[in-house]
Nucleic acid binder design. Structure first.
Lengths: 225, 225
DNA sequence: AGGTCATTAGTTAATACTAACTAACTACAA
DNA sequence: TTGTAGTTAGTTAGTATTAACTAATGACCT
């Protein structure tokens, strides 16, 4: 995967690479059979619609038009399904962050890009929101909750380092420490997405996201004298 | 309750009234028997520690040192327990918000007060965080998810109106619209609490909360010329 | 004696998962 | 080209366990 991505980067622009992540099938790169991908996608859908309590092997198999036993041909347990699901998110996120960090944008441009791309992904697949933004739902299993916390922590660190970079090169205000700026930037984005979900995805997330970015920029960008 | 609160307000300062809410037993005012209160408190604890998946009648009764059947003497169903739990939160929150709105503080002072009081409540009873901040967890039941969304919406509206008030009287910047300021203020607070939880409540929430408030103030307070 | 609060011992339905089996395909030697 | 062996992906019909919930009963206090 890492090697492949490197090869991809040599032939395409950053903009084009982003399209890989945003494309209809987010799980393209993971080493899974078609049936496994289908099971994962359907699992995300079920969690999205019915919550974890509604995520049962019976519901899953019915949604796929298979018998319950058939699921176990492709995953050895329910936990393995959730694990795979989370791992694929972690992997995609890791590469996404890597791409953002490495490119030549300024820190504010990076934040803008993150807002743009994430709101695009969520607009295309609202079901992902339910899984990524619900840190509580896999609390049952220690292994799973660790994985979910990892996602949150990773995002935190990414914003933190981007903002620190911005403060160092005088693009972002130093009147407030980077930890608090991270809370405000990331927290605002998360709450916006949560509100969007609560309103049944009825408003245009991409537009709201853009508006939010410019508001944040207004407040945290260093003023020219 | 409303009448009672009004009577209380005539005899005590705002500061003292807050202590009612912050006191050990948040559920004091709700019309519940002692056993019922105990069941609700224990339910919150279980959800806090084991998640909703671990919130079963068996676990609950064991934690209380009762038989499973005994629970049904006090609540007619599991759903009724959760309903009561959420209703008590909604009631407390409603009165809390009312108190904030009515007092003579300036908008920024109001926000500061909310940060202070909420971080105090959560510090005393971290279990409450898991319930209030986990909008996903009761998704199973339509009635319950409506209740939880109501809490989020109410908080949203409160911040919105406080910030609008601040913009009208020139205490808060108008360079950014109040909806975005709400996202940043409330979103930052929520994310801080979530991080606190993720770090096993190990840092001092009250201190972090104070620091966050002053950071927000720095960014959104109208500059004197 | 009656009300309150608990118990024990169940029920029913749902859960994750398994055993035993099979149709359809694939690889490849005769 | 065809017979054979093995694989893949599915089936039906179960298992043990656990969930929420209930009926019948007992103990204690006033």
């Amino acid at each position: 995967m890492k090697v492949f991505l490197k090869a991809v980067k040599e032939h395409f622009s950053n903009q084009q690479i982003f399209l890989f992540f945003v494309s209809e099938h987010l799980l393209t790169f993971i080493m899974l059979s078609n049936r496994q991908k289908q099971i994962i996608e359907e699992s995300i859908n079920i969690i999205h619609i019915h919550g974890i309590q509604g995520f049962t092997i019976k519901n899953l198999s019915e949604a796929l038009g298979l018998s319950e036993a058939a699921i176990y041909r492709h995953f050895k347990s329910k936990t393995e399904i959730i694990c795979t699901l989370l791992d694929s998110f972690i992997e995609i996120l890791t590469d996404f962050i890597q791409l953002i960090k490495e490119n030549e944008f300024s820190p504010l441009e990076k934040i803008k890009t993150i807002f743009e791309k994430l709101s695009l992904i969520f607009s295309n697949k609202p079901a992902y929101v339910s899984v990524i933004f619900a840190e509580e739902i896999f609390k049952n299993d220690k292994l799973l909750s660790v994985k979910v916390n990892k996602i949150l922590k990773k995002n935190n660190e990414t914003f933190n380092s981007i903002i620190k970079e911005g403060q160092n090169n005088n693009e972002i205000t130093k009147s407030v420490s980077n930890q608090e700026l991270t809370l405000m930037t990331m927290g605002a984005f998360r709450l916006m997405v949560k509100n969007w979900k609560m309103n049944n995805f009825s408003f245009d997330l991409k537009k709201s996201s853009e508006k939010l970015y410019y508001s944040i920029e207004t407040l945290i960008k260093t003023k020219d004298n």
